[in-house]
């Protein structure tokens, strides 16, 4: 299981990635994340993050009728969200590269 401290800062980008494919709702996003290996990510975990994404204008929402009682909120990525997603991924690659460098070739003592 990925520690929650490690997830912080990356989960928003990952949610954006899931939303960028098509309009989707909370439970579906949590299921998609679980499918990709983000264990124990429930709808409740991502709900505050979705609210933040909406507040920052990275996604828009639309309520639609649901077969299960109340209306369901669907999320759609905005152009700002798309550019934020691009910059998230390039930042992630940079971080990944730095961590890999450290662990693969820089694991020895400093000279």
């Amino acid at each position: 299981m990925i520690p929650s401290q490690m997830l912080k800062g990356t989960l928003e980008g990952c949610i954006l990635k899931v939303i960028c494919y098509n309009e989707t709702y909370g439970y579906e996003i949590s299921q998609a994340l679980q499918k990709y290996g983000f264990q124990d990510i429930s709808e409740g975990t991502i709900y505050p993050l979705l609210l933040r994404l909406e507040k920052n204008g990275l996604v828009t929402t639309q309520s639609r009728e649901s077969p299960l009682g109340p209306k369901r909120k669907y999320f759609k990525i905005t152009p700002l969200g798309e550019s934020t997603l691009e910059s998230f991924f390039s930042n992630w690659k940079e971080l990944e590269n730095a961590v890999n460098q450290l662990f693969q070739s820089g694991g020895q003592k400093h000279e």
Partner: peptide, 23 residues
Amino acid sequence: RQDLLEMVLSAQERNENIETVIG
């Protein structure tokens, strides 16, 4: 409140409870 109710009511339909959704 509306969002939370939607989450919990949908969870009920899947035979899950509030703890499964929110922790």
